[in-house]
Design a protein around this nucleic acid. Structure first.
Lengths: 227, 227
DNA sequence: AAGCGATTAAAACGCTTGTTCGAATCCGCA
DNA sequence: TGCGGATTCGAACAAGCGTTTTAATCGCTT
């Protein structure tokens, strides 16, 4: 391991390496000793610069969220203008997904940060839940609204369901690229973000366009046991 | 906490509570002290009955995988026979998803075990990766084959991609039920497995039916940088 | 060149982790 | 009733955790 990213001062070096290691191994799965060793800095540096391990995670979110949301909303507005108020469904979906898959070296968004959010969600990390709510609720609601407008045949709940399915498609692909590579015997490479984007957008858009499921009461009632 | 499931001997009580706790908090996120306290047994019981913490995880997989795979394959064969060799896409998808969402008290499959696999996948747990490969490779390949037959317009790689997207939709819904409930302000409840199944199957089937993406070389070549 | 605030370094803190060990206890069979 | 294997129990182990402390060092300004 040792230093893989020698550029920048101690603080930004920790930030970048921590983002990658947390994304791949989880927040509790990476110790500060592993982290500081990989970054080539002293153990105490994290607590000095960020106050605590959780402070480091907060700093990662603060450096990534706004650029990523700006990029997503910019793309959403752009495709709305071109079409004169009724953007193509694929454009909305791509506006949401593409910034999440961007190469992390770019300013906005990035695949590593998306994987980080996916990993933290599975970890049930409470701080991450708070940060996601703080930084992503507004943008997500904007997209849900745009999707609902493009899909008038769906109930509000169904738009939420399918938006959630979209999140799952995106997150799992980022968090576990090894499974599809193993299953397909190397035919598919989930780290190839261009292919992932090309495959994911039409798939998700078609799912959104599926006819509405019978609303109200559940369709098939096999058991009355309520919940 | 204390004992929530008083039935059964020590060994099976540990097994059930461990499955639930690992599913919700991750393998490394649950200590043996938390676990044994919640189960109402002595700390040393896990190492006595299962050899180690990893042995406990292995035992969970050994008790769940075969019944779940049997259920999935039984459903797959059943729908193939009815249709005379060309089962409806929705039936194949449902044969895969329904056992994964079943109430865990039932013998086969179960939502808790599905959540466990999703959590472990995000944790990059090496033992879990081995166990999933051992127990799920064969069944998954069977479903991929059946899907490819039902979708002759897709290349092999595209069937793998969309099967992987299906996994993501299923896993994220199980692993993070809190997000959609929060975003929809309680309108959607991801722990209501009947609704999840009713929403997920048509969505996924429509995604599978989407036209094929241009195969071979990537569609849009923005950069030549290979990977 | 001296001094001073910012940063780095090394060591130790208290605490939790999975695992192990020997003694105590349980339970079915003679 | 008493023996003996199976199980449970309490205690302790070394190792790793996040954090804190104190001293050493750096780098800029006067």
């Amino acid at each position: 391991m040792i230093v893989t990213d020698a550029a920048g001062d101690t603080k930004t070096r920790i930030l970048r390496i921590a983002e990658r290691m947390f994304a791949e191994q989880g927040f509790s799965g990476v110790s500060l000793r592993q982290l500081t060793t990989a970054a080539g800095v002293n153990l105490a540096a994290v607590n000095y610069h960020f106050g605590s391990k959780e402070g480091l995670l907060t700093a990662i979110f603060e450096s990534r969220c706004n650029p990523m949301n700006d990029e997503r909303l910019h793309r959403l507005e752009a495709c709305a203008e071109v079409e004169g108020g009724s953007p193509l469904l694929e454009q909305i979906v791509a506006a949401f997904i593409a910034p999440a898959l961007a190469s992390t070296n770019n300013a906005a968004g990035g695949a590593v940060f998306t994987r980080l959010r996916a990993t933290l969600a599975a970890e049930q990390n409470e701080l991450a839940r708070t940060l996601v709510a703080k930084y992503f609720d507004a943008t997500s609601s904007r997209f849900v609204t745009a999707l609902a407008r493009a899909l008038p045949h769906l109930s509000q709940a169904e738009v939420f369901w399918r938006f959630n399915f979209l999140l799952g498609t995106l997150y799992y692909t980022m968090v576990n690229p090894a499974r599809i590579e193993h299953l397909s015997r190397g035919l598919c490479d989930a780290t190839d973000v261009d292919t992932v984007l090309a495959q994911m957008v039409p798939y998700v858009a078609a799912g959104f366009r599926a006819p509405a499921v019978a609303s109200g009461a559940p369709k098939r009632i096999q058991r009355k046991s309520a919940r």
